[in-house]
Simulated scan of single mutants.
Amino acid sequence: MHDTTHGKSLLGEFLSTRRAQLKPADVGLPDYGDRRRVPGLRREELAQLAGVSVAYYTRLEQGLSLNASPQVLDALATALRLDDAERHHLHTLSGDARQSRLRLPSERVTEAVRQLVDAFGDAPVVVVGRRSDVLMWNRPGHALFAGHLPLDSPSRAATRPNTARLLFLDAHTRDLYVDWPRKARDVVGKLRQAVGEYPGDPRLAALIGELTMRSPEFATLWAEHKVREWGMNEYRMRHPTVGELDVLQHSLPVPRGRGVRLVVTTAAAGSAAEAALRLLNHSLRPAREHTADHRDGAVSPRS
């Protein structure tokens, strides 16, 4: 029952927050300049746009109506001007994926995942779990994102880095991104998606609570209820060793590894960024003389 109650409270928060972010003019409704008690659309206005009764919509926001039909959810998503990622998130929060969320999948780095990481050679690779914990990285991935941390830190739960925690609370990681606010929005949006998919994960809830308390910037972004999908994103990084470089970060789901993803960083062929990544790899060559132990949380790239 806890999952259902929690999920429905998340649904209500999402609906009410996104409703508050819309103005009548945004959805083609007249605004007579009257002073509103709350920002954004009124419940009756959103209900009218979605073609549902005010009473029914109110029950949805209050968590009193369960199992809204996909058609109603789609109508609400359209009325709220949600994008594809947010529309999917709305369906997830409503309980459509309830059966898949009853048990939390285990997060572990299998031999198949290690082989997959090895196959990327010199490309920086970081393996992350559903909570954005770093489960593993290869040497280029470690050097690009967190060279100031011990190479073997992902191998122990007590020292395992978390990419969201690093971005908001670690000065080195914050300086890595020229447009830090955009990266921050992307990271928070992905955590929003994770909370919708795994509402019963206590460690995920603890991470959100910690970041909300320790970072006012995180708390502000979290309150917006914006959702981001994993995929491909372009960033300009500012690395302390090789300088600025424009890269693509590709997020690839691991087969049979629910919630586990490979984040692979690439640069355009012939670009200054590609040269910078080669320079970074060249700086690792002395370390490559020692074969990395797979059990230490890192994989030595093949030459």
Results as ranks from 00 to 15, higher is better:
Leu149Cys: 08
Trp230Lys: 12
Thr17Gln: 04
Ser251Arg: 11
Arg182Val: 11
Gly297Pro: 08
Asp296His: 14
Ala119Pro: 09
Leu284Gly: 05
Leu277Ala: 04
Ala205His: 13
His89Phe: 00
Leu221Val: 02
Trp222Cys: 07
Asp201Ser: 02
Arg131Ile: 07
Asp118Met: 15
His142Arg: 08
Ala219Lys: 09
Gly200Val: 06
Ser153Asn: 02
Glu234His: 08
Tyr56Ser: 08
Asp84Leu: 05
Leu144Gly: 00
Ala292Gly: 13
Leu280Arg: 03
Arg156Asn: 13
Leu11Arg: 01
Asp296Arg: 14
His89Ile: 02
Gly7Pro: 05
Arg214Thr: 10
Thr163Ser: 15
Leu151Pro: 01
Val187Leu: 12
Ala79Glu: 06
Leu10Asp: 06
Leu66Gln: 11
Asn281Gln: 12
Gly200Lys: 06
Ser215Tyr: 00
Arg81Cys: 04
Asp152Leu: 08
His142Trp: 14
Pro124Cys: 05
Trp137Lys: 03
Lys190Leu: 10
Asn138Val: 02
Arg261Tyr: 03
Gly121Glu: 00
Leu90Thr: 04
Gly200Glu: 09
Leu46Cys: 07
Asp84Ser: 07
Gln193Trp: 08
Thr5Cys: 13
Val125Pro: 06
Leu279Glu: 13
Ala287Asn: 14
Arg185Gly: 07
Gln249Arg: 11
Leu191Trp: 07
Pro154His: 09
Asn162Val: 10
Pro181Asn: 05
His142Glu: 07
Arg130Asp: 01
Ala272Leu: 12
Pro286His: 07
Thr110Met: 04
Asp118Arg: 15
Ser69Ile: 04
His148Asp: 07
Arg19Phe: 03
Leu277Tyr: 00
Tyr56Ala: 06
Leu262Arg: 04
Val54Met: 10
Gly257Pro: 04
Glu234Asp: 11
His91Val: 01
Pro253Cys: 02
Gly129Ser: 08
Arg101Trp: 06
Pro199Thr: 02
His89Arg: 04
Gly259Cys: 01
Pro240Cys: 10
Val54Gly: 11
Glu224Pro: 08
Ala267Leu: 06
Leu221Glu: 09
Ser283Asn: 14
Asp296Trp: 13
Leu10Trp: 00
Val54His: 09
Ala164Val: 07
Arg160Thr: 07
Ser53His: 10
Ala269Asp: 15
His290Arg: 15
Arg192Asp: 05
Gly189Cys: 01
Ala68Phe: 01
Gly189Tyr: 01
Leu284Tyr: 03
Arg98Met: 14
Ala287His: 14
Thr173Cys: 09
Arg108Gln: 13
Arg192Thr: 10
Gly129Pro: 02
Pro286Phe: 06
Asp296Cys: 12
Ser132Glu: 12
Pro202Tyr: 03
Glu44Ile: 03
Arg214Ser: 10
Val188Phe: 03
Asp96Thr: 14
Ala47Pro: 02
Asn67Met: 11
Asp96Leu: 12
Val242Ser: 00
His225Gln: 11
Tyr57Arg: 05
Ser215Asn: 07
Gly141Ile: 00
